[in-house]
Design a protein around this nucleic acid. Structure first.
Ligand SMILES: [Mn+2]
Ligand SMILES: [Mn+2]
Ligand SMILES: [Mn+2]
Ligand SMILES: [Mn+2]
Lengths: 222, 222
DNA sequence: AATAATAATTAGTTCGGACTAAATTTACCC
DNA sequence: GGGTAAATTTAGTCCGAACTAATTATTATT
């Protein structure tokens, strides 16, 4: 274990991880968008990360980046911090799932490994964060995720909601008000083929959700 | 409220506060020492802080610095964070008093006001940190401290230990092993006028302490 | 009061990480 | 296959905050 990576580098790696989860390379523009930084800045940083020893990303001009083994470990470390922190803010300080992100975003870079171990232990080594996302293990491996986006379901299918990914605070509050939280059982009632809206029922409530929403919700089909 | 002081600035202000508690100005060299930075860097930073609007320090060449009202508030905010965090790491995550400093040192700069309120509330608004130091109030005032250094006591005086200030981890562990922790009652048994050693008894244990140690321990005389 | 020692300041560099503006690829379309 | 639009990269600048080396002030000593 070499250098302690800067906060900036940690954030780059984390977002590259997220953008490459689908198997594709992370593009300069997408990365710039996520990091709230100009594309020119991304290019420069990504070149540095590719040239560092050990290299943290694989990069060739105009082709975007992927993480190397080292880069991936570093990313998972940050993501583990982030998700453990979110879990712990919710469980012990009464944050709600729409309030935790910002604080975790800054804390993730400054907690020690000791702190990480302690909160993990105090919480009994949780497997998922408040949004239902897997928390990377202490050994920095990511559990295999076999959930599918809600947008893939059709009427009469039932499923259990596993996680909500990439939703802002407002959407999270809305989903909660509909009972659409991790663990809930839901049923698809209707599908509109033209706009891809789904009518979904959870508990006593039901609502029509657009593709915008249904592709941020991941479920396990029952 | 032009918050968003950099971490560096926050650390400067905190250490200036501590160096000026005795009423004196903080010297360039003393600050450099505390901040683990070269004196030249301190001079430059201190000039910037004096020139900013609002000014955070009062400075004139070769005379050292003091905090302005604004600088003092900012310093107390950081110190409140630090001490609340220490308290909370000890109470909820099982840190011991010699382990908390480093983590609190980094976390103090990144927690939100919301986070601060939450941990304060969860702990019932503690007044002192694990070392017995006063925690600045939410309104950023510092309680009046009427304790005196243990070094000022003489044989047959008894006192209650209030706080240990400026001790490193090793000394803290040593003091704990002697039962010298906040709240304990102690008695001075002997005094050596030449080296200023004190023989001190707390509970069943007693030990001879040098000036080095006795001026880091603050007590209330009974 | 002159000088030596110590403290503090200035000047000039460096480094990380952002930015803008300009140049260059790549992608798409007719 | 040329021509434009979009994506990306390069070049040059800036800012905060540190550093070293050189200079100046303050203080202590004789
Ligand atoms: Mn972050
Ligand atoms: Mn999450
Ligand atoms: Mn600090
Ligand atoms: Mn303390």
């Amino acid at each position: 274990m070499e250098h302690t990576l800067t906060i900036s580098v940690q954030d780059y790696l984390k977002h590259i991880y997220e953008l490459t989860e689908n198997g594709e390379n992370a593009s300069t523009n997408a990365l710039a968008e996520k990091l709230d930084v100009k594309p020119a800045s991304v290019t420069v940083m990504v070149q540095k990360l590719a040239l560092s020893t050990p290299a943290l990303v694989e990069y060739q001009k105009h082709q975007g980046v992927t993480l190397t083994k080292e880069g991936r470990k570093a990313a998972l470390e940050v993501i583990r911090h982030h998700r453990l922190l979110e879990t712990w803010l919710v469980r012990t300080l009464g944050y709600s799932w729409d309030e935790v992100h910002e604080d975790a975003e800054r804390l993730e870079h400054v907690i020690s490994e000791d702190f990480e171990r302690r909160i993990a232990a105090v919480m009994g080594h949780p497997v998922r964060d408040p949004h239902g996302e897997f928390i990377p293990t202490a050994e920095l491996t990511m559990p295999l995720d076999d959930s599918v986006p809600l947008s893939a379901l059709r009427p009469n299918q039932t499923a259990m909601l596993q996680c909500v990914r990439g939703a802002d605070a407002e959407l999270l509050r809305h989903l909660e008000s509909l009972g659409l939280v991790p663990g809930v059982h839901l049923e698809v009632l209707e599908y509109s083929p033209f706009d891809h809206n789904l009518m979904v029922k959870a508990g006593s409530k039901s609502a029509v959700l657009g593709l915008n929403v249904t592709h941020k919700i991941f479920v396990e089909v029952l």
